[in-house]
Amino acid sequence: MVDLEKLKTAARETVSRDDVKYLIGWRQGTYGFRVSPHFVKEPEEAEKLIFSPLCTNNLATYLVLTERLPLPRGEQPDSRKVALMVKGCDSRAVVQQLIEQGIKRESVLIIGCPCEGVIDLKKVEEKFPHLPGPAQARWSNGNIVFHLPDGDKEVPKGEVLAAKCLSCRYPNPVMTDLMLWEEVQTRGNDEYDDITELEAKSPQERWLFWEDKFSSCIRCYSCRNVCPMCYCEDCVLDRLNPAWVFRSNNISENTAFHLARAFHLAGRCIECGECERVCPVGIPLMKLNRKLAKEVKEKYEYIPGLDPESKPLQSSYRPDDKEDFIL
């Protein structure tokens, strides 16, 4: 069960430590069901921390997005830890970053929050439109209770949970320094049914589907920026000389952009669903990522973000990898 007092106490203790720079958690957003990331630098700021079904954001992004400005001469870099609150999926992002050596184990302190599933904001806003002020929510015996201005509303989980949570395999953080409350039960076993469904169509039908989706892309790069795995300092999509993907917004460049983005996450995507959540035009990006995750699982029996000792998929090989596609 979620114990907010325990969470706040743990946060206060963590932030008071000398070797911790700050703690990243969630707090109430400014309106509706929104939740903001909360950077706790002083113990008293821990009061604002929350953990509820509204905490959709994957905070692992902030570990790798930190701006590293050049230091003044003679100054040492700040080597203190960053404490991070993680759900199950977020913890896999951290582990994957460790696998890729994007971050160092000693520079991060992982606070695990076993999670019973977070909401899909679009589904909830459809259910409760035009909310005047901020609203809250909590888990309760398999349902989600929303605290709205006109009283509490209890909704079955199945109606409002995000798709990734309905078939979540890892609701409990896979690696933590501190687990805040007891672990929850695994909900589902992901069989990639939606991917199989699309695969069964003919190539023409699949292209029509993707052409429609890709042509609506406005190339805002939100999907890349929010992704906890997209942290290359020199991104191929930003290159100008040579320009791998032109900036013009047409079906050719949009397709190349989406193929490049999806491919760069092959064997790395931990399926937190952030890219799809932030997409302003609703492109089903997880259908691309999950296709590759499915292939990686079937071909190489590899699931990213579980074992920090494992090697990244695409920088390792087995001599007996399948090669039935080679002439």
Partner: peptide
């Protein structure tokens, strides 16, 4: 070992291209 890495990469790229509807 260069071709071993290539094999993994292009096995996935081939799947991805076919998935978005490019003729196999």
């Amino acid at each position: 070992e260069g071709n071993f890495y290539a094999r993994r990469r292009f096995a996935l790229m081939k799947e991805l291209l076919e998935y978005v509807g490019v003729d196999a």
